[in-house]
Amino acid sequence: MNPFDLTGKVALVTGASRGLGKGFAIALAKAGADVVVTSRTRESLDETIAEVESLGRKAWPVVLDVREQSSIETCVAEAWEVSGGVDILVNNAGCNVRKPALEVTWEDWNLILETNLRGVFFVAQACARRMVERGYGRVINIGSVTCVNGYAGLAPYGASRGGTKQLTMSLADDWGPHGITVNCLAPGWFKTAQNKVMYEDEGWVDYLTDRIPLKRPGAPGDLDGALVFLASDASAYMTGQTLLIDGGISVGAVRAVPTK
């Protein structure tokens, strides 16, 4: 038997209309899962649905705003109704505001923490309540390299991702006795809709690449293997962990010896 096979499983991916979330939905479908995909608007999910269905898997669109408690409860109830039950949660929906710490506003802080941390917790809680009844679940919280590294201009974002790492450990301890694993998948520097403007600066890209031991930013597909691992029975004895897929940048951003 292939422990990475997700045939017969149902995954729920939040923030699945674009970027990493869309890639996660497609990767899970390739591994055999049917997928509930969410976004704040139904129309934005059309491309993701088409790609999942082209792989012969089912895709169900559900509207979700992770900043609204009622939206979370409605979404999770609908996800269970249309799919028959969710086995895997990929807690991906997130946002960012890049500013020097002295310029961060009250509103900036609330937007980021409510989306990236509060939303992650309450989506996981709503799913786990139903997973407990089945005695099985895989919760994958999406963090980032800022779970472990600090970067100027990303104070609220880093706080939210560091919180995600700590939350993952607490939930793993809480829900482990119920057959639910909780892990954090932490990407390094990937080009997404949130940060694409930064990748238009060749000097910045060179600066970043020099600090990545594998000498390149993340590319589409680099997260697929780790995601499927965490979603599958291959990781059945792994919980509370943060898995960094970052090209090695988290080993140390400053080079002690110049490289050629």
Rank of each mutant, 00 (worst) to 15 (best):
N2M: 08
P3A: 04
L6W: 05
G8C: 02
V10C: 11
A11D: 07
V13H: 07
G15F: 07
S17L: 05
G21R: 10
G21F: 11
K22G: 01
K22H: 13
G23P: 15
A27Y: 03
A31F: 03
A31H: 01
D34T: 01
V36T: 15
V37T: 03
S39F: 00
R40P: 04
E43H: 12
A50T: 11
A50G: 04
E51A: 03
V52D: 08
V52C: 14
V52I: 13
E53C: 00
W60E: 02
P61A: 01
L64H: 06
V66C: 13
R67E: 12
Q69P: 14
I72H: 04
T74H: 10
C75H: 03
A77K: 14
E78I: 05
E81K: 00
G85P: 06
V90W: 10
N91M: 13
C95E: 13
P100K: 05
P100H: 14
A101H: 15
A101W: 01
L102G: 14
T105D: 03
W106E: 13
N110R: 15
I112S: 00
I112D: 06
N116T: 11
G119D: 07
V123S: 07
A124V: 05
C127D: 12
A128F: 02
R129K: 14
R129Q: 14
M131S: 00
V132K: 12
G137Q: 01
G137D: 01
I140N: 07
I142M: 15
C147P: 14
G153P: 10
G153F: 04
G153Q: 00
L154R: 11
A155L: 14
A155R: 12
A159S: 11
S160E: 09
R161W: 07
G162I: 01
G162N: 10
G163A: 13
L171Q: 06
V182K: 07
N183F: 09
N183K: 05
A186D: 06
P187L: 01
G188I: 06
W189V: 13
F190A: 08
K191W: 06
A193L: 03
Q194Y: 09
N195C: 04
V197S: 15
V197G: 15
V205G: 04
R211G: 01
I212W: 00
I212L: 01
D222V: 00
L223H: 04
D224R: 09
A226T: 11
L227T: 10
V228M: 05
A234F: 03
A236V: 13
L244K: 03
I245V: 13
G247F: 01
I249S: 09
V251H: 03
V251G: 11
K260M: 12
